[in-house]
Nucleic acid binder design. Structure first.
Lengths: 364, 364
DNA sequence: TTGTAAGTTGAATCTCACC
DNA sequence: CGGTGAGATTCAACTTACA
């Protein structure tokens, strides 16, 4: 790592870097990336690449040895690129990997072995999968993604409300129905053949990036292919770094991404949770005279408490914050006093949360 | 292995054997079982308590049998029971295992390491999963099953047509929508508490056994619990062998299975229910690029709103779902955004409902 | 009896700012 | 780094109570 240059400035943003992804990742400054999306190759047909100890004839035992050896080669490869990826991540960074049953179990186990902390596994349910023509198995209608943060105590970005909005106001689930990439989105080469065998749909990356990054975040894809990650990142105002070994793919991806335009800033603002709202102390309502010391608050089933000048409540034996007194009256471990308590105005019962909204509106 | 007695006759069929599953499996004759269904401990590693937003406490799976000190301990356990299971299988035998992201990657990798040949991974999509109460992750709405045969050249049973029939005449896919086990099917103990924390639905086993065994086949479940595998096997005219360590579970299972009657052949025909129109989230149109963030939607009297990246709209001060913003502009309590909003294509105004129809057509 | 409302529950790796 | 306390957070299906 070059200590002369601050990491952020040393990052080659919005570029496609040629070469082997492990080498290239190891040349980049550590702790500099917010999110990694990785769609590694999963062909296990590595037998031809293996160096046998001798030229013995292929028999059943050798077949088993072959299979074991090919898993070992794949596992070594997985271990190396995951370690390089992990080094690049910021402490609160996260990774998505995608695979099928051929490789995803090995990737998932290695993620755990390296200390990544799995947050969800997600099923991409293909609405239009290729049927199983021979009728010997089930239609292979899904692929599996794993979402993991760098370590158990990382605080990965999760835009809960944005994903809920994407899902008609209902909490987003771990199974995503998205069509495979075809039609106009499917990139073709000069011969009209598909430019990449496993091009991922932009809808998939849209959901990943909206849900687990913020605008301006750095997203790295070590198996860039024809650049779906980069294309969607650019649309969504994220910075990307692509790594791709094959020149043909790099060319297609560069052309593709050059044509993309970033969405308006307004369109990129997503729904946020209440957690992101500025915190308001209940005492402020008293200070401002919105509630008076001595005034009575009412709980959901008629419970009564009195407001004190310091912004605490008193109700029977219980005294303390709006939350503590609410919890005490409910014999509950906790209580959100803002939604629990109400007061009377002009004969009507009004939640104290309305007053908090007023203060928040003034703050904007 | 006792060579004096043919293996098949030595098998303790339709019984629940007490004890540790590894020891018991190793005491049974090798090569004698057609199918193994295994639902091992998931190693959930839960820490503190979890409360619902209404402050009720979630009854977590904190049983002693799910505690493992480390990944290494869990992996050793997995290796041993899978090896014992493999020994029991006939050459053309197969195995199903089920798990969550906590353990399924480790099981899948070990299956491959031992020479099992994966045929499919199957996603059990729960129609009614427990939500993520804290809003910190996606709803964990599925579990994963792996279907593997004993070795690459095994010829595992696969009843293609039967599964196709179960699926309204369409080839069965690798994602199965099945509700979690509750209601009358959920077994209770004498106190009215659930008898087992992780009882699997009979519908799941029904599909597994119809699809991958024949009547008369021997099905072994080394983690028998309260005996869903045995109950469904008996209904379907398969022979079962259960292994269960806990006496309480064995008692419940025995009582349960004694009440089961084998189906008439006629009764095996399953009734199919007509599905409602699938719900489409407006956000899907954005993810799929049918509408772009920043694009303008038009209301029936020329009202204008902009699409945001998370599938919400913004129009003046109003922001929210297509329904919410429509209602706000009309000062109405509610509004069907699908019929309210339109967009421009090639100079023509097109209802967004047209796009919803397109997605529904793809889903069929 | 029937319809409606309120209550319960499920394999869960479920907070975070501040002192 | 650990302790403290504010305060944010749920979906579908079934069961029970009651009109």
């Amino acid at each position: 790592m070059n200590k002369m240059i601050p990491a952020a400035e040393a990052l080659p943003l919005n570029q496609i870097l040629p070469g082997d992804c492990i080498e290239v990742m190891n040349s980049l400054p550590e702790g500099s990336v917010d999110l990694i999306f990785a769609d590694p190759p999963y062909n296990l047909q590595l037998k031809g690449d293996l160096h046998r100890p001798d030229n013995s004839k292929v028999d059943a035992v050798d077949d088993e040895w072959d299979q074991f050896a090919s898993f070992k080669v794949y596992d070594d490869f997985t271990r190396e690129w995951l370690a390089a990826a992990r080094r690049l991540l910021k402490p609160n960074g996260a990774i998505w990997v995608i695979g099928s049953y051929h490789n995803v179990f090995r990737m998932g186990a290695e993620l755990q072995n390296q200390g990544f902390w799995i947050l969800n596994d997600v099923v991409w349910r293909k609405s239009n999968p290729m049927p199983n023509f021979r009728g010997k198995r089930l239609t292979n209608a899904h692929e599996t993604l794993i979402w993991a943060q760098k370590s158990e105590d990382s605080k990965a970005t999760f835009n809960y409300e944005a994903l809920k909005s994407l899902n008609e106001g209902v909490q987003m689930r771990s199974d995503w129905v998205i069509p495979i990439c075809n039609g106009g989105e499917r990139l073709k080469d000069d011969n009209g053949e598909k430019a990449h065998p496993t091009q991922k749909p932009e809808a998939l990356l849209h959901r990943v990036l909206v849900g687990t990054t913020n605008p301006g975040d750095v997203v790295l894809d070590p198996f860039f292919g024809t650049g779906t990650t980069g294309a969607v990142a650019k649309m969504l105002g994220r910075e990307f770094i692509g790594i791709e070994r094959e020149e043909a793919y790099r060319k297609v991806a560069e052309k593709r991404i050059s044509k993309i335009r970033k969405f308006d800033k307004e369109a990129l603002t997503v729904s946020t949770s209440k957690r992101a709202e500025p915190r308001v102390a209940f005492g402020q309502l008293v200070e401002r005279g919105m509630l008076r010391p001595g005034e009575t608050l009412i709980g959901p089933r008629g419970q009564i408490a009195k407001v004190r000048a310091d912004g605490t409540l008193i109700s029977g034996e219980a005294r303390g914050s709006i939350h503590q007194v609410g919890a005490a009256l409910e014999s509950a471990p906790s209580c959100n006093g803002w939604t629990y308590w109400a007061f009377k105005r002009d004969g009507k019962t009004v939640s104290i949360d309305v007053l908090r909204q007023q203060i928040r509106a003034e703050m904007r």
